[in-house]
């Protein structure tokens, strides 16, 4: 439609009468209206459910707000308290960073590995792709996190199997040194979305590059590092940005596996989980809002850094490099 309008403005068809033009304009206008009508559920939703609350939370982050009585303006107090008075805040930051650094690369590696496997033509390809994508559809659900909890608990399936081979861990989710790993594994297992994107990326790599590599006698590993990976860097970059943003915001797994507590001993107290506790258990909504905005800033900053660094390692075909 926009294109139509542009066309109408830049090159009016020579034989069009004034009346025709007017009608066309009116039509375009009418169509715009309808388009907005169809967009309206989304727009109203975005305004009321996203933008509105975001603005409200920005305001609340400068107040003391306990949910029941009117917010009271405290300026930067919440932000100052985060860094000066709150040990658990700092510990939740370090837990979250560790999680991001572990889960994002591992998940991408898993996604890429599986994508390479599935990229080769074989019988039942469709089935395998669906099967490997399935965990992503299920993985974010509470039910799976509950299953995970049962699997990795003391005397759970994993513990029992490990005991059979002589490794006695005594459960994973109940010990601080293992609990985060359980949640990382849960995240890695949901590699479906990046995998699909990797698959699409792999299809884009021109076959002649591989042919040339084969002619040159490159080994498989060499082909991977010199052809596949460089050609794939735009997709890697996209996936990396998405995964890092997602893992900063991880919540469900930690919430369900630790029963909302972030335990044992705060080892799964993710940033978002602590934010939730401050807000909904301690009724300190102002404080929680400040945490939310800080998270937003950090994610923006990290994403910005990634974009800045991308000039150095992301290769777009057609570029001269």
């Amino acid at each position: 439609m926009v294109a139509q309008q542009v066309e109408a403005v830049t090159s009016p068809p020579p034989q069009e009468s004034k009346r025709d033009q007017a009608r066309r304009k009116r039509n375009a206008k009418g169509q715009t209206g309808v388009a907005y009508l169809f967009l309206s559920p989304w727009m109203i939703g975005a305004l009321l459910l996203t933008v509105g609350p975001m603005v409200a939370s920005l305001y609340l982050s400068f107040t003391n707000y306990n949910l029941f009585t009117a917010p009271e303006w405290v300026g930067l107090d919440n932000y100052v308290r985060l860094f000066t008075e709150d040990d658990r805040f700092l510990s939740s930051v370090s837990v979250t960073l560790r999680y991001v650094l572990l889960s994002a690369p591992l998940k991408l590696a898993a996604a890429l590995a599986v994508a390479m496997l599935l990229n080769r033509p074989r019988k039942g390809q469709g089935f395998y792709r669906s099967a490997f994508y399935a965990p992503s559809l299920l993985g974010a659900s509470v039910a799976i996190a509950l299953v995970w909890r049962a699997l990795f608990t003391d005397s759970g399936t994993v513990d029992t199997l490990l005991q059979k081979v002589g490794i006695n861990t005594g459960g994973w989710i109940n010990q601080p040194q293992y609990a985060t790993i359980v949640i990382v594994i849960l995240a890695v297992w949901q590699f479906g979305a990046p995998m699909v994107i990797f698959l699409a990326g792999l299809k884009q790599i021109p076959q002649d590059l591989y042919d040339a590599a084969a002619v040159d006698g490159a080994s498989k590993w060499k082909t991977f590092t010199s052809v596949t990976l460089p050609m794939l860097t735009p997709v890697v970059f996209f996936n990396l940005v998405m995964e890092i943003i997602n893992s900063f915001q991880a919540f469900t797994g930690a919430f369900v596996v630790s029963n909302g507590q972030g335990g044992p001993a705060d080892s799964t107290l993710f940033y978002t989980l602590y934010l939730y506790q401050r807000g909904f258990s301690d009724f300190q909504m102002g404080y929680a809002s400040a945490m939310a905005w800080l998270l937003l800033l950090v994610i923006a900053l990290v994403t910005g850094l990634l974009f800045w660094s991308s000039g150095r390692w992301v290769f777009y075909s057609g570029e001269d490099k």
Binding site: T153, D154, G171, N174, Q261, G263, P264, A265
Partner: peptide, 9 residues
């Protein structure tokens, strides 16, 4: 011990 107590919910 801690790992047992941690499962109290």
């Amino acid at each position: 011990e801690g790992s047992v107590t941690a499962q109290i919910d």
